[in-house]
Computed example of a mutant assay.
Amino acid sequence: MDVIPLDAPVGAELRGVDLAKPLSDDEIAQLRDAFLAHHLIVVREQDIEGEDQDRFVQHLGPLLAFDNGVYHQFMTNQHVENAAMSGSGRLLFHNDGAFRSRPRAGTSLYAIDVSPTSPPTSFANGVRAYELLPENLRKKIDQLSAVHILDYDDPEQESNRVRQADFPAGRTLDDVRHAVHPMVVTLPYSGQKAIFVSEFYTSHILEFGPTSTEGEDILQQVFAVLYDEGNVYSHHYRNGDLVVWDNYGVQHARSGAIDSNPRHLRRLVLDTLSW
């Protein structure tokens, strides 16, 4: 098995591997080292079943069960059981579950049936962006936390950032899913630091408050580096592609709306990184 860094600001491709077969101990060690170093793993041209994706991803940690008790769901525009409720529009960059007290550790998608018009998943490197911030800004956000919101009652949230400052009169944080996390997180095993605020879920910086122009200016400075095109890789799926990424080190987005052509991917979520 070979680990080939992508010609991109994040990610590496595994080559010379058949995920329909169990990995050797040496290959498992290679996978884990590559995941820590590159934060996103791509494996192409795989003809696998669900159990093969499960086995591969579990080399990085235990899977999380969804609310219905199963460990997989489908990101799809087909009418199937266990389809995720993710809409069909563009999805802004985010870390999965940032509005929860314990966000997801990682995510994997396997392309079962995708068309050439299927929108890509784009990835922004939170580790690289942190390192690129001016030193004074890094030191500032190291000491700050942010409020993250998911508002189930807002039909526009999938394509628009929701801020507490924009709530209608009478609506409070108690009416939405929300959590507070440091603006900078430390990744397990590697000890690297990554930006943990996003254009999707982040409402405001806690210490500045929801209506602070200074707090919003800090967020926009961070977003400008994080979402610069030089810090983003877009993966255009072909059938048989598998991707898995670190949800703390990398943010992802659906970079376009889904049309009527097939876009059917199997999704797994890592509960923790653990080996």
Rank of each mutant, 00 (worst) to 15 (best):
R128I: 03
G249P: 02
L133Q: 05
A98F: 02
M85W: 07
H235V: 04
T117F: 03
E13T: 09
N247I: 10
P103K: 11
E156C: 06
V243P: 00
Q73E: 13
D67G: 12
T76C: 05
M1Y: 02
T202H: 09
D47N: 15
G50W: 01
S86L: 15
W245P: 00
A111V: 01
Q73Y: 03
A8L: 06
V70N: 14
I41P: 02
G89M: 11
P103T: 12
V225N: 00
V185Q: 09
V243C: 07
D153C: 03
D33E: 15
I149G: 05
G230C: 04
R55H: 09
Y227F: 14
Q221H: 13
L133S: 09
H252M: 02
E27W: 07
A124G: 07
T76A: 07
L206A: 15
L265Y: 01
D54E: 14
P182S: 13
E158D: 15
V57M: 11
T211Q: 14
R163N: 11
A169T: 11
F35Y: 15
I149N: 03
Q251V: 03
V232P: 00
R267N: 02
V185N: 04
R102I: 13
G191E: 05
G106A: 11
D47P: 00
S101P: 01
K140P: 00
K140V: 06
F93N: 04
H94R: 08
F167D: 02
R55G: 06
A65L: 14
G126R: 08
T211H: 15
N77K: 10
